[in-house]
Structures are given as structure tokens and as C-alpha cells.
Computed example of a mutant assay.
Amino acid sequence: MTGRTPVVIGISGITNSGKTSLTNKIRAQLPGCLTICQDSYFLEPPDPRLTPIPELDHYNFDELNALDMDAMISDIQAWKDAQCNTTPPGSTSHDLYSNVLIVEGFRMYALRELEQMLDKKYFLRVSFDVCQARRRTRNYTPPDKPGYFEKIVWPESINHQREIQDHTDIEFMDGTGNQEEMCLKIVSDIKRLCLQ
């Protein structure tokens, strides 16, 4: 049994850069498309794999070790395998893009194994001020402790950007730009990939 070729898209970026909003807009344009969010793989305190920050009485949730990346990679691979072994659906309007998976998260390109699973990669950037202002409007569990953004969130975000800044296969985008335009551009890229 031969299925459709799976297309896996990475939407990454600094925390609060608009990844989830953009992903939802893209998904709405691609009937049958599925998403996996990296936030679903956060470890729960007091998991021993989490790094404590004693001076903040908090854990570091902004490093890769705060995520069960093995589980995430396994889930993506299972989806890809299922696509390759499933009879392609009829060309009905509600499942046209059921072979497309959008994987969204803030540390998407830190592992080579995950990077190699992605057919196209995007990264949203925002400034310190924009990121901080947006983060203040969000509720986290557990909630941010005073000083956590300045001491942990932003430095971790900048370090990750430095790690990937020379990756020529990542398309960097302005997270404060017009999301409708970004959505149309990415949807066009995805449709082109589906035709290959």
C-alpha cells in the first residue's frame, strides 16, 4: 500500500513571536492539515531532567532539556510512517492536505535529528521590547517568576538564534510583520511542495 508523500513544515521563533497564531492561520488554509506543538512536550515539575534556578525558585523551561524531544521526534516519525502506509484519500475538499504536518515550537532547530525531518523551515524574530510586552499578556503554568524573562527567557532565545543564524535552509521572518502576508507566502510554499 503506497500513501502520499508526507510534507513536514517547521514554524519556529522566539517565545511570543506569533508562531501559534501564524500556524493556526496556515492550517485554516490547508484542509486536512495537522499540527504538532512543541509546548505539548514540556516536562512537568519536579521532573529531575528540569534544571532548577534556585535564585528564582523556578525551573528553566527555556532550554531544550525542559522538553521531551524523544517523544516529539517519535510522534512526528510515526505520523510520517502512517502517511507512507495509508491509502491516499479521495480528493475531497476536507482532506486535500492530510499529508501536511506543521510542527511549531520555540526550539525547533536545536536538534539535527528533528531538523532533518522538516521539508521547509521558518523562524520568526521579534525585539526584546516586543517579546517582553507580549509575554506579560500570557499566563503560564507555572507562572513566570520576577526576573525570569530577563535572566532566562531572553538570553536563551538569543543563544538559540545565534546557533541557527548561519543555517541557509531556514527562512527568517519578522514576527511583527503582516501575518496574513506571511500566511499566504507559507501556504504557497506548502502547496508547491505538495506538487513535487
Score class of each variant (00 low, 15 high):
residue 103 V to Q: 02
residue 104 E to Q: 12
residue 105 G to W: 02
residue 106 F to R: 11
residue 106 F to D: 03
residue 106 F to G: 03
residue 107 R to V: 10
residue 108 M to A: 08
residue 108 M to V: 05
residue 109 Y to D: 01
residue 110 A to G: 12
residue 110 A to S: 11
residue 111 L to C: 04
residue 111 L to K: 14
residue 112 R to S: 15
residue 112 R to G: 09
residue 112 R to E: 15
residue 113 E to A: 14
residue 113 E to D: 15
residue 113 E to T: 14
residue 113 E to F: 02
residue 113 E to P: 04
residue 115 E to P: 00
residue 115 E to S: 12
residue 115 E to Q: 10
residue 116 Q to A: 07
residue 116 Q to Y: 02
residue 117 M to F: 02
residue 118 L to N: 00
residue 118 L to G: 00
residue 118 L to Q: 01
residue 118 L to E: 00
residue 118 L to K: 01
residue 120 K to S: 11
residue 121 K to H: 04
residue 122 Y to S: 07
residue 122 Y to L: 07
residue 123 F to M: 09
residue 123 F to Y: 15
residue 124 L to N: 08
residue 124 L to A: 08
residue 126 V to Q: 07
residue 126 V to D: 05
residue 128 F to E: 08
residue 128 F to D: 07
residue 130 V to C: 06
residue 130 V to A: 09
residue 131 C to K: 01
residue 131 C to M: 06
residue 131 C to R: 01
residue 131 C to A: 14
residue 131 C to F: 00
residue 132 Q to L: 01
residue 133 A to G: 03
residue 136 R to S: 03
residue 136 R to D: 00
residue 136 R to W: 00
residue 138 R to S: 05
residue 138 R to L: 04
residue 138 R to P: 03
residue 140 Y to C: 07
residue 140 Y to G: 06
residue 140 Y to Q: 10
residue 141 T to L: 12
residue 141 T to V: 15
residue 142 P to T: 15
residue 144 D to W: 04
residue 144 D to Q: 10
residue 144 D to H: 12
residue 145 K to M: 10
residue 146 P to M: 10
residue 146 P to C: 10
residue 148 Y to H: 13
residue 148 Y to R: 13
residue 150 E to I: 04
residue 154 W to V: 08
residue 155 P to V: 10
residue 155 P to H: 10
residue 156 E to D: 13
residue 156 E to W: 03
residue 157 S to P: 01
residue 157 S to H: 08
residue 158 I to M: 15
residue 158 I to P: 06
residue 159 N to Q: 14
residue 160 H to W: 04
residue 161 Q to E: 15
residue 161 Q to L: 15
residue 161 Q to H: 13
residue 162 R to W: 02
residue 162 R to M: 09
residue 162 R to A: 11
residue 162 R to S: 10
residue 165 Q to V: 05
residue 166 D to L: 08
residue 167 H to W: 05
residue 167 H to G: 00
residue 169 D to V: 02
residue 170 I to R: 00
residue 170 I to M: 01
residue 171 E to P: 00
residue 172 F to G: 07
residue 172 F to Q: 12
residue 173 M to Y: 11
residue 174 D to P: 10
residue 175 G to E: 07
residue 175 G to S: 12
residue 175 G to V: 10
residue 176 T to K: 14
residue 177 G to Y: 07
residue 181 E to A: 13
residue 182 M to T: 04
residue 182 M to K: 04
residue 183 C to G: 05
residue 184 L to E: 13
residue 185 K to P: 00
residue 185 K to C: 07
residue 186 I to K: 05
residue 187 V to G: 06
residue 188 S to L: 02
residue 188 S to F: 02
residue 192 R to V: 04
residue 192 R to N: 10
residue 192 R to H: 08
residue 193 L to D: 07
residue 193 L to F: 08
residue 194 C to W: 10
residue 195 L to E: 13
residue 195 L to A: 13
